[in-house]
Each structure stands twice: as C-alpha cells, then as structure tokens.
C-alpha cells in the first residue's frame, strides 16, 4: 500500500508517495538519490545507514519512510555547506580515518550527533557513541582521534566566532 509523506531532508521540503514497507534508508537512496547513506546489514547492526531524525541519530534501515512523515532528516550530504566540508569530514581526511569508506558516512553522522550533545567528548564518550558503527578496515583508532580533533576544531572556531562577535559588538558601540 502507498502513502504520501511530507518531510524535510537536508533543509529541503520533500513530498513523495512511498510503499509502507519501504525503509527511510531505501527512500533516501532510491527516492531522493542521496546515496551517501549506505546499506550494510539492513537490520540495525552496522550503523552504515545512520541519519539524524529530528536531530537524533537513528539507523535508517530500522525506520519506515512513513514514520518520517512530518519530520526532519539530515543525511551526510546535509553536513557539508556549499561545498565546504564539515569539521568532522576534514578531520576524517587528515587523520586518514577512511580506508574503503563504506562505514564513513555513518560514522560521521553518529559523531555529528555526539558533538551536538557533548562538545568536549573523552575518548570513552566517543567510543560509546560510535559503538553502533562497525568498521572492518581501520581499527577505529584514527576514527576516534578524528572525532576528538574535530571537536577541538569546532570549539576553537566557536571561541573565535564569539570573540569576533564581541569585537563586532564593541565596534557598534558609539564612541
């Protein structure tokens, strides 16, 4: 049976007819051509299908597209802005946390969810947050390092941003 759904994906409003049995994962890949989100196990074990649903990390192979009606979805494609990589993506590259790359979008999305909640994660925090993401290549060390590097980069960018903000405020004060 088909149902019509309306949802926001990476900031864009989408309306589509979907089969009830279709997963959010298949809808993103086949319906919207957002192939960054990967299908590994299709049963909630590997994390390669990770997306943010209303800001929360979820395994999109365990969510039906109809369940996402009226919700907001962010995929890995939604993390970079106008061709500029997200600090996590930059850190994954500089730490060489990518080998075959199949797990990478899921890792980056889970890590993005973590950094929203916790800008100063310990190694243990990172490992716990990524416990649902399997990687068959890297051995995880580079991935954990990359997430902590990105967290540091985002903190210093935020500080620089707020300093710039303060400077701007000062300039606006009439002499």
């Amino acid at each position: 049976m088909k149902k019509t759904i309306t949802l926001e994906v990476n900031g864009v409003a989408e309306t589509a007819e979907v089969e009830v049995g279709q997963t959010l994962l298949r809808f993103l890949r086949d319906g919207l051509d957002l192939t960054g989100t990967k299908e590994g196990c299709n049963e909630g074990e590997c994390g390669s299908c990770m997306v943010l649903l209303d800001g929360r990390p979820v395994n999109s192979c365990l969510v039906l597209a109809v369940e996402a009606d009226g919700r907001t979805v962010t995929t890995v494609e939604g993390l970079s802005k106008e061709g500029v990589l997200h600090p996590l993506q930059k850190a994954f590259l500089s730490q060489a946390a990518v080998q075959c790359g199949f797990c990478t979008p899921g890792m980056v999305v889970s890590a993005a969810a973590l950094l929203r909640e916790n800008p100063t994660p310990t190694e243990d925090d990172v490992r716990k947050a990524l416990a649902g993401n399997l990687c068959r290549c890297t051995g995880y060390k580079q991935i954990v390092d990359a997430v902590r590097d990105a967290a540091a980069a985002m903190r210093s960018a935020a500080e620089a941003g707020s300093d710039a903000g303060k400077a701007a405020e000062r300039e606006e004060v009439p002499a």
């Binding site: 994390g47 649903l53 395994n59 889970s110 416990a131 649902g132």
Partner: peptide, 9 residues
Amino acid sequence: VGAWPLRQR
C-alpha cells in the same frame, strides 16, 4: 541495550 542510536528508537 544495543548502542546509542538504537536507543533513540
């Protein structure tokens, strides 16, 4: 139970 993303559901 499971992992963090699984527990969101």
